[in-house]
Amino acid sequence: MVEEKNIFEIKNFNVWYGDFQAVKDVNLNISSNRITAIIGPSGCGKSTLLRAMNRMNDLITSSRTSGQMLFHNIDIYDKNTDVIELRRRVGMVFQKPNPFPSSVYENVAYGPKLRGIKKKSALDEIVEQALIKADLWKEVKDKLNDSGLSLSGGQMQRLCIARSLAQQPEVILFDEPTSALDPISTAHIENLLQELQKTVTIVIVTHNMQQAARISHYTAFMYLGELIEFGNTDTIFVNPANKLTEEYITGRFG
C-alpha cells in the first residue's frame, strides 16, 4: 500500500447555520489513500462536515465556519485560497445521482473543458480513461452521446464518479452515494470504491453500518455535531471506547 499521510487536518472546526451550530469543535485527520467513513444518526452534521471539506457550504448563505480545515497544511478557508483549485482536487459525489441533462460524454468532459482542455483527441482520451476507472466504459461506450439522464440509477452514480475522476482529484467526498440505489448497484459501487482507493483518498458518509465496516479503514462517529470517536474501523466496530458509539453501532438507538 501507498504510504499514508494526513491529507486533511481538521482542527477545532465549527460550522453554524445562522444561530444553529451543526458541527462542534471537531478534530479529525484524514489519511491519504485510505477510505474514511463518517457515521452517525440523522442530523448529526455528517453532510455538513463533508461539505465543509471542499467548501460546498459556501453556497449556503447562512453558513459560517471557524477553526482550521487544513488540506496539505493549507487552511482552505483562508481568504487567499483558490476555491476552484480546491474543488478540482477535492471532488464530491452526492446522495442523489446528479448528472447534467447533457450527453454522457459532455458530463465527463465538463471538468477537463473547464480546465481549458479543448482538443478533441485529448478530451476523448480523458473521457475514456475516467469511464474505465469508474467501471462504466463497457456499458456506455456505444452510447456516449445519449443523455446522462437515460442511464439507470447505479450507472448515473458511476457517471458522476467518472465526472469527478476526469479531473484527477486527490480526494473524493461521497455523501451517502448508495442510499438511493438497489443492493446490486450498491455492491458494484462499493467494489469500485475499493479499487479507486489505490489512487484517490476517499471520505464517505453512510447510514449503512455494514457498508462502513466492509469498505473503510477508518471510521468517525458523530453525534449532535460532535465527533465522539475516531479510529481504525476494526477497533470502532469490535471494541468501541465510547458508550454512545457502542449503542449506535449495535443499533440500540438512532
Binding site: 496539505h72 493549507i74 480546491l86 478540482r88 477537463p112 482542455i117 480523458i126
Partner: peptide, 12 residues
C-alpha cells in the same frame, strides 16, 4: 495522459 493545468503542482 493529458495533464490538467496545475495538475502536478503541489497544492501549496
Amino acid at each position: 495522459m493529458h495533464t490538467i493545468e496545475n495538475m502536478n503542482k503541489p497544492f501549496e
